[in-house]
Amino acid sequence: MFRLRNLVSVVVFVGLVAGGSWLVLNRQLVLDHIRVWQYQPSQDIATLADRATMTNKAKFSFYLAQPRLENATQFNHDCRRIEQASPIVGCYSHAKETIHIYNVRNAELDGIKEVTAAHEMLHVAWSRYSAEQRRRLGELLEAAYTKVKTKKLEERMAYYERAQPGTRANELHSILGTEFADLGSELEAHYAEYFSNRAALLKLHAQYNEKFTSAEAEADALAASLARRKREIEQLTASYHARINAYNQDVAAFNQRATTGGFQTQAEFQTERNRLSQRGLALRREQQTIQGKVDAYNTDVEKLNALGRKIDQLNQSLDSQKAVK
Results as ranks from 00 to 15, higher is better:
residue 182 D to C: 04
residue 267 A to H: 11
residue 194 Y to A: 07
residue 204 L to W: 10
residue 236 L to F: 03
residue 196 S to P: 06
residue 199 A to K: 07
residue 213 T to S: 10
residue 232 E to V: 04
residue 256 Q to I: 13
residue 183 L to E: 00
residue 259 T to P: 01
residue 230 K to I: 01
residue 202 L to G: 09
residue 218 E to M: 11
residue 183 L to N: 07
residue 175 I to R: 05
residue 189 A to T: 14
residue 223 A to D: 14
residue 268 E to Y: 03
residue 190 H to Q: 10
residue 219 A to S: 13
residue 196 S to V: 10
residue 183 L to Q: 04
residue 223 A to F: 08
residue 172 L to N: 02
residue 256 Q to S: 13
residue 240 Y to E: 03
residue 230 K to Q: 15
residue 183 L to M: 03
residue 248 N to V: 01
residue 179 E to F: 06
residue 200 A to L: 02
residue 222 L to R: 10
residue 224 A to S: 12
residue 192 A to V: 10
residue 183 L to S: 02
residue 259 T to N: 09
residue 196 S to N: 08
residue 175 I to T: 11
residue 218 E to H: 14
residue 197 N to G: 10
residue 238 A to D: 13
residue 237 T to Q: 13
residue 192 A to T: 14
residue 222 L to P: 07
residue 239 S to Y: 03
residue 184 G to I: 08
residue 228 R to S: 15
residue 177 G to T: 05
residue 228 R to C: 04
residue 205 H to I: 00
residue 195 F to H: 06
residue 235 Q to R: 09
residue 243 R to G: 03
residue 189 A to H: 11
residue 261 G to C: 05
residue 201 L to V: 07
residue 250 D to L: 03
residue 186 E to V: 06
residue 267 A to S: 14
residue 203 K to A: 15
residue 175 I to Y: 10
residue 261 G to H: 06
residue 260 T to K: 15
residue 198 R to C: 06
residue 174 S to T: 11
residue 190 H to R: 12
residue 251 V to P: 00
residue 224 A to V: 00
residue 201 L to H: 08
residue 171 E to N: 03
residue 238 A to S: 13
residue 241 H to P: 02
residue 221 A to M: 00
residue 170 N to T: 11
residue 213 T to C: 04
residue 263 F to M: 01
residue 264 Q to P: 01
residue 241 H to K: 11
residue 233 I to E: 02
residue 186 E to H: 00
residue 216 E to K: 14
residue 220 D to F: 04
residue 241 H to E: 15
residue 251 V to G: 01
residue 200 A to D: 09
residue 200 A to Q: 05
residue 248 N to A: 15
residue 268 E to V: 00
residue 191 Y to L: 09
residue 227 A to H: 13
residue 177 G to R: 08
residue 199 A to I: 04
residue 186 E to W: 07
residue 211 K to G: 04
residue 199 A to V: 12
residue 176 L to F: 07
residue 221 A to G: 00
residue 207 Q to H: 11
residue 173 H to I: 09
residue 246 A to F: 02
residue 242 A to H: 07
residue 205 H to V: 05
residue 253 A to D: 14
residue 200 A to H: 06
residue 206 A to G: 10
residue 244 I to Q: 13
residue 246 A to Q: 09
residue 226 L to N: 07
residue 244 I to R: 13
residue 192 A to L: 03
residue 240 Y to M: 01
residue 173 H to G: 00
residue 209 N to T: 10
residue 261 G to M: 07
residue 227 A to R: 15
residue 171 E to P: 08
residue 263 F to A: 03
residue 234 E to A: 15
residue 241 H to V: 09
residue 260 T to V: 12
residue 234 E to F: 04
residue 232 E to H: 14
residue 196 S to I: 06
residue 213 T to E: 08
residue 256 Q to C: 01
residue 233 I to Q: 08
residue 190 H to C: 00
residue 244 I to L: 00
residue 187 L to S: 05
residue 250 D to I: 00
residue 189 A to G: 11
residue 171 E to C: 02
residue 209 N to F: 05
residue 214 S to G: 00
residue 240 Y to H: 03
residue 221 A to P: 03
residue 195 F to T: 01
residue 228 R to A: 15
residue 192 A to K: 13
residue 225 S to F: 09
residue 191 Y to H: 14
residue 257 R to M: 11
